[in-house]
Amino acid sequence: MAKSEDSLTLKDLNLGCVVTEPGNARQYKTGSWKSKRPVTDREKCNKCGLCYIYCPEGCIRVNNKGYFLSNYEYCKGCGICAHECPQEAITMIEEEEE
């Protein structure tokens, strides 16, 4: 299957809407739900990774420079990372703002 949610039609549904392919929740991009997104100030961040541990969505990954950053395609904007950050390095900013 592996279709995006926009291109799915009723013809793609199995009997009883059974899903035969494991792990396809990954295709469901929940990032559009958020009204605010977390932005990390790399000056303040000490790369402790607590945000990664607390994120209920599991959408924070470490990049090649050791920073823990949210994947905005899945981040729902709950703000738990910003609340828990001991360095206060994460700010939640409105989606419309740059």
């Binding site: 949610e5 009723l10 549904l13 059974v18 899903v19 035969t20």
Partner: peptide, 20 residues
């Protein structure tokens, strides 16, 4: 032969499930 039964259907597909 594992499958998922009763997966949730968000707004983008729920209408189609009812049509079927």
């Amino acid at each position: 032969k594992p499958v998922t039964m009763g997966a949730f259907a968000p707004p983008f597909i729920y209408t189609e499930t009812k049509k079927i």
